[in-house]
């Protein structure tokens, strides 16, 4: 195939890049906020909060992301941008809340005891001692989930949002002999979007091995 053919494909895909990236950013923001809210909810002092967040988490982990996406789009019905970002954000938020909860609980008990011995308030203990250590454990996992979210953004093409996968499908429909090139380039574009996130995650993994108390 001539170079111009590849350039055609790239320019078509670039039209979808705006949606792919903005869906990723908005879902990630929703996901991280939900992760902390639900993560803290799971270890709340109040049993009704614990129970409520558990139901949320189990519901979103137990049903499939793509089913949730369709439900938001066809049943509620939300505009496709918000159906996409909410489904991805709420779904990944549920998964990541387990990371938040797990990391906070994984900080050794001795750290809590030392903070009590230093007469810190509950809030001080969380802010100064527990969270800084828990965050180091969370961040690499958050990075991993961000890479997963890049892949998940492709699902929004199924509800008619014109992301890069959607654009590729449209281009392919009228250029069937170029199917191989279209999808190979599309896969490479996704890989290139994920590449900096992979590097970031590896870096976070290295950083996280420092400065956490071990039992």
């Amino acid at each position: 195939m001539a170079i111009s053919g590849y350039l055609d494909i790239l320019s078509v895909l670039s039209r979808g890049l705006y949606y792919t990236i903005s869906i990723l950013i908005v879902s990630a923001i929703i996901g991280y906020i939900i992760a902390f809210v639900a993560g803290f909810g799971r270890i709340s002092r109040f049993s009704f909060i614990r129970r409520f967040t558990m139901i949320y988490v189990e519901f979103f982990r137990g049903t499939s992301l793509i089913v949730q996406l369709f439900w938001f789009y066809y049943v509620l019905p939300l505009p496709n941008f918000w159906a996409g970002t909410l489904a991805i954000g709420l779904n990944y938020g549920a998964y990541m809340s387990e990371i938040v909860r797990g990391s906070i609980l994984a900080v050794p008990k001795g750290q809590t005891e030392a903070s009590i011995a230093l007469n810190m308030s509950n809030w001080q203990r969380m802010r100064l001692v527990i969270l800084p250590q828990a965050l180091r454990m969370m961040l690499p996992e958050f990075g991993n989930y961000l890479i997963q979210m890049v892949k998940a953004t492709s699902l929004v093409s199924l509800i008619g949002l014109t992301d890069i996968t959607y654009q590729a499908m449209v281009y392919r429909a009228s250029n069937i002999p170029q199917s191989i090139e279209v999808f190979v380039i599309l896969l490479i574009v996704y890989f290139l979007i994920a590449l900096p996130l992979i590097a970031l995650t590896r870096w976070l993994e290295r950083m996280s091995s420092k400065g956490v108390a071990r039992e």
Partner: peptide
């Protein structure tokens, strides 16, 4: 691992 399974399905099916 880092590319969408949806696109991988399309690749196998269409390409």
């Amino acid at each position: 691992r880092t590319t969408p399974p949806l696109v991988q399905l399309y690749f196998i099916y269409y390409a």
